[in-house]
Design a protein around this nucleic acid. Structure first.
Length: 263
DNA sequence: CCTATAGCCTGACGGC
DNA sequence: TGCCGTCAGGCTATAG
């Protein structure tokens, strides 16, 4: 579920396992996630180096190298990280693999080839290239900024929250949760939102992301009041007990409660 | 600026 | 059991 909370959990996992170790070798199992660069360049840039620290912007994870530049990871729809020792335990669907001099490994596990691995020098330049909006989870992301970003927009609230160029980090699943907590219909146009509802959406955004991270992005640990565990056909609304509805908005599958989330 | 659609990928799942 | 269609949390391009 690689949206902002998931990537933040991966970041902390990487911090806890994979820093300050010499990189002996790197394997790239598909060129399709390299965005124009080559396996040789990635290998040359990582061999005999070490990972020193991490950062994150939206759904992108940045890992600083000991000399200069960053390793960038994006997890697409199915990416995950696994740190392990025994080479026999290499996870199925490993697409990118770092082998450390201490014999441990860090694998980017990704059944579909929809992610990204790249080496860059300048993080801000990369963010600009990708035209990413401000990270939703950063300290400076307050209500005034949120409101300003939506100013003059006419689109539906759900795809607006998910638009990485407006603000970075929210995806399909967590936008459902945010709108459920705010009790706002996903198709409501942004310019029809009154101040009070806008504030509710902002607060829900902060609460949902914070809680999801705190719960390690594990749906089994999510509060009983959340809709995510009920995001399935025939699911029941945790608020009113009614049936959860599934519709399509901007080509994405949306789950919401028609009774609790009026237009 | 905004929406819908298709495509990129490939595994999981449900129905027959 | 096996085959087939559908769907899935990402992003991007294109047309209207």
């Amino acid at each position: 579920m690689p949206e902002l909370p998931d990537v933040e959990v991966y970041r902390r996992y990487l911090n806890a396992t994979s820093l300050h170790q010499g990189i002996r070798d790197v394997e790239i199992r598909t060129d399709q996630i390299l965005e124009g660069t080559s396996p040789l360049k990635i290998k040359a840039g990582l061999r005999n180096r070490s990972l020193e620290s991490t950062d994150r912007h939206g759904k992108f994870l940045f890992v600083a190298l000991d000399n200069q530049g960053w390793l960038v990871l994006h997890f697409g729809m199915t990416g995950d990280l696994k740190y392990y020792k025994n080479p026999i335990k290499e996870p199925e669907y490993t697409k990118f693999l770092i082998e450390y001099t201490n014999d441990y490994h860090l694998a980017l596990v990704m059944p579909r080839k929809l992610g990204l691995v790249r080496l860059i020098l300048d993080m801000q330049k990369f963010i600009k290239e990708k035209e990413l909006g401000p990270d939703v989870y950063q300290d400076g992301f307050g209500y005034e900024m949120f409101k300003a970003l939506l100013e003059g927009r006419r689109g539906m609230i759900k795809p607006t929250l998910m638009n990485q160029q407006i603000m970075a980090g929210i995806g399909n699943v967590y936008s459902d949760e945010i709108l459920f907590q705010a009790r706002v219909h996903p198709r409501l146009p942004v310019d029809q939102l009154q101040e009070e509802r806008l504030r509710k959406i902002f607060k829900a955004t902060k609460d949902v992301l914070e809680t999801a991270i705190q719960k390690k992005a594990d749906p089994e640990q999510f509060p009983a009041s959340w809709i995510i565990p009920h995001r399935q056909k025939g699911g029941e609304c945790p608020n009113c007990g009614g049936k959860v509805r599934n519709i399509s908005v901007s080509g994405r599958s949306v789950y919401y409660c028609p009774d609790c989330q009026p237009t």
